[in-house]
Simulated scan of single mutants.
Amino acid sequence: MDFVSDALSSGRCVRTLIIMDDASREALADKWLDNYNSQHPHRSMKGLTPNQKRILLKKSAMKKEDLIIEINNQV
């Protein structure tokens, strides 16, 4: 349960009681998080979405791991 308040353009205050169960709240949060991570590019990630950045980092880590294995095999 939560109260949300806002003001109309006339200046009249409006308060609304929101009743939402935990499952609905979690589903809404999951939907928002998925949308945020897959649809919204971030300046700090050079215009990539978090999902795109995660894929690039994973590929980079795999390349580094292959390089370390190759170096260890040469020793």
Rank of each mutant, 00 (worst) to 15 (best):
residue 5 S to W: 11
residue 9 S to W: 08
residue 7 A to I: 08
residue 8 L to H: 04
residue 46 K to M: 10
residue 61 A to C: 02
residue 5 S to N: 13
residue 32 W to V: 00
residue 24 S to V: 00
residue 26 E to T: 02
residue 18 I to S: 08
residue 62 M to A: 09
residue 18 I to L: 14
residue 7 A to M: 07
residue 35 N to D: 08
residue 34 D to G: 05
residue 69 I to W: 03
residue 21 D to P: 01
residue 70 E to G: 01
residue 29 A to R: 10
residue 12 R to I: 08
residue 45 M to W: 05
residue 11 G to D: 03
residue 54 R to A: 14
residue 33 L to T: 06
residue 47 G to R: 01
residue 72 N to L: 11
residue 66 D to N: 12
residue 14 V to H: 06
residue 40 H to S: 02
residue 74 Q to K: 10
residue 57 L to S: 05
residue 75 V to Y: 10
residue 13 C to W: 10
residue 47 G to D: 01
residue 60 S to E: 15
residue 75 V to N: 07
residue 11 G to M: 04
residue 33 L to C: 06
residue 70 E to F: 11
residue 25 R to P: 01
residue 4 V to Q: 13
residue 74 Q to I: 05
residue 27 A to S: 12
residue 6 D to L: 10
residue 54 R to E: 08
residue 32 W to H: 07
residue 75 V to F: 12
residue 10 S to Q: 05
residue 37 N to S: 03
residue 56 L to Y: 07
residue 12 R to Q: 15
residue 28 L to P: 01
residue 37 N to A: 01
residue 71 I to A: 08
residue 32 W to F: 15
residue 27 A to V: 00
residue 26 E to G: 00
residue 46 K to N: 14
residue 65 E to D: 10
residue 59 K to V: 00
residue 59 K to D: 07
residue 46 K to A: 15
residue 10 S to R: 03
residue 34 D to A: 06
residue 35 N to K: 07
residue 25 R to M: 09
residue 24 S to L: 11
residue 51 N to K: 12
residue 31 K to E: 13
residue 12 R to V: 14
residue 34 D to P: 01
residue 39 Q to P: 01
residue 9 S to G: 10
residue 1 M to I: 09
residue 27 A to R: 13
residue 62 M to G: 00
residue 32 W to T: 00
residue 38 S to R: 12
residue 33 L to A: 11
residue 70 E to N: 04
residue 13 C to A: 12
residue 24 S to M: 13
residue 30 D to Q: 12
residue 15 R to A: 13
residue 17 L to P: 01
residue 19 I to L: 14
residue 37 N to R: 04
residue 46 K to D: 13
residue 67 L to N: 05
residue 40 H to K: 06
residue 64 K to C: 02
residue 62 M to Y: 10
residue 5 S to L: 05
residue 44 S to C: 09
residue 32 W to D: 02
residue 55 I to S: 00
residue 73 N to C: 07
residue 44 S to E: 12
residue 36 Y to Q: 09
residue 12 R to A: 14
residue 69 I to L: 06
residue 26 E to Y: 08
residue 71 I to V: 13
residue 47 G to Q: 04
residue 31 K to S: 11
residue 29 A to F: 06
residue 74 Q to Y: 09
residue 4 V to K: 14
residue 33 L to Q: 10
residue 11 G to C: 09
residue 29 A to S: 07
residue 75 V to C: 05
residue 64 K to T: 04
residue 39 Q to L: 05
residue 60 S to Y: 08
residue 48 L to G: 00
residue 47 G to N: 04
residue 61 A to R: 03
residue 56 L to R: 07
residue 38 S to E: 09
residue 37 N to Q: 11
residue 5 S to F: 07
residue 53 K to C: 03
residue 47 G to L: 02
residue 13 C to Q: 14
residue 56 L to W: 08
residue 37 N to W: 01
residue 30 D to F: 06
residue 53 K to V: 04
residue 14 V to S: 04
residue 23 A to H: 07
residue 64 K to Q: 11
residue 9 S to C: 09
residue 31 K to Q: 13
residue 53 K to Q: 11
residue 4 V to I: 15
residue 50 P to V: 02
residue 7 A to N: 09
residue 21 D to N: 15
residue 30 D to L: 13
residue 33 L to I: 03
residue 34 D to K: 09
residue 21 D to V: 03
residue 68 I to E: 08
residue 7 A to F: 15
